[in-house]
């Protein structure tokens, strides 16, 4: 239990550092703002208690808010991901997955399943995040376009990074 706790904290710190030091500095365009830190929430074990998933989601959102001067913004968005994740998993995972206590990943669930899962929850996260950020409906379609492009980019980064880790495990 304690070992699990330290494992998650290390992973959280690593993912936050990647987001802050690498991904946030991409700045290709105002339409491409990928946020990949929700991979932390996506990859939590399916059997983890929902209240713990929700708490951890808010916690990683709080950390992101602290470092990007936007109180409440990332917290609200990643909280939604944490809450709705368990509903989607109940629907999309078999009993076997729950018995084996797997963590959703590309290696365990396959390319199509994982990409769709990532896309759906990333889209939810980005929709909440970008509309809350602009805080009005005055630029509805421009924001919508920004959500779509950013989501595609985030999913691409998450899936490619999963592929790399997948390769590493295979070759060992």
């Amino acid at each position: 239990m304690i070992i699990d706790f330290f494992k998650y904290i290390t992973k959280l710190v690593f993912i936050v550092l990647i987001q802050l030091l690498v991904i946030n500095n991409i700045e290709l365009n105002t339409y491409i703002n990928p946020y990949i830190y929700i991979i932390f929430i996506l990859a939590l074990p399916v059997t983890m208690k929902p209240w713990l998933v929700v708490s951890l989601s808010f916690f990683i959102g709080l950390i992101m808010d602290t470092f990007s001067s936007t109180p409440g913004l990332h917290m609200a968005a990643s909280g939604f991901v944490g809450y709705f994740r368990s509903f989607y998993l109940e629907f999309a995972c078999s009993k076997e997955d729950y018995e084996k206590q797997i963590s959703p990943s590309l290696a365990k669930k396959g390319f199509a399943w994982f990409t769709f899962y990532t896309f759906l929850l990333t889209l939810l996260h980005h929709t909440v995040l970008f509309y809350l950020e602009i805080y009005s409906l005055s630029e509805f379609f421009r924001t919508f376009f920004r959500i779509i492009t950013s989501t595609l980019f985030s999913v691409l980064i998450i899936v490619v990074s999963e592929l790399l880790f997948y390769r590493n495990k295979e070759s060992r």
Binding site: W51, V54, S55, S69, P71, G72, M75, Y83
Partner: peptide
Amino acid sequence: YYTFILFFTLELFSFVVLYQYNHYQRASFL
């Protein structure tokens, strides 16, 4: 419904913080 209640409370908290920050520049959080 404790998960939902937890989710709802924390969401409410984030919205309040966000609203205050956007409108009154009461940046106590930061």
